[in-house]
Amino acid sequence: MESASSMIAIERLSKTFETSRGTSHLALSEISLDVAQGEFVSVLGPSGCGKSTLLYIVGGFVSPSAGALRVADKPVAGPGPDRGPVFQEFALFPWKTVLGNVMYGLLEQGRSKADALARANALIELVHLKGYENFYPKELSGGMKQRVAIARTLAYGPSILLMDEPFGALDAHTRTGMQMELLDIWERDRKTVLFVTHSVEEAVFLSDRVVVLTRSPGRIKTIVSIDLPRPRRRAELLVDRRYQQYVVDIERLMDDPRVIPPPQGEGDAPTGRREAPPDDKLRAPGGAPS
């Protein structure tokens, strides 16, 4: 998994920001992570731990301070249509209709107008927005806006989806609905997904693996493999003891200020791969992010 089929290869990546006071702030420290093709990986951590920054670096929107990053075996030099972002803020083009938004990337990639129109319409149907083609973003609810954003990104066919707390701005009910829709879409073509969230349940429900980061500066505390059958149904998982155990274990991990050695699994408790840098064993929790 590490080399041949690795879609995203992150090696000892660090990011330091210069603050306005002239000091520097270490946001990410020595992150090493491989994501296989078709894998759904969530990055989980307390707010301010740099998990979004990690995603922005993979997207090419932010450059790393140190370390190496390869996507599909090529070094990342900037943003590209092979990595499609979906942001918590939706970031739709407000002067374009739903249809105009979904077609934008297609036309940008040189598709013919008829071709782009057909594909955009199919995607709008996929995200259940048929009938809203000519609506402007301001006329849509948050959940609908995020559906448009997902369709807009899927349209130009990225091989990797980079999702930055995409459902974080939605109410709980819309949120769980969108999680199911996302899994349905993902089951169709199994794109590689890097998904940033601070919800443990969301991460466990969606992912093949969950990467848990420490408080600022973000380091990998542990990586948990989620060994639950797919396709997943929320109602079934909620009563599944293994699912509950994953959620409880990861919640405990996040509460614990230390980087914990793997708990001794018993029965059907999760036995995920856990990685912890040795120098991090007894780190006190970092201060709140400034």
Partner: peptide, 14 residues
């Protein structure tokens, strides 16, 4: 102008 809007456009190839 929202940074994320510009990033979305950059990913499309602008």
């Amino acid at each position: 102008v929202e940074e994320k809007m510009l990033w979305s456009a950059a990913a499309m190839g602008l």
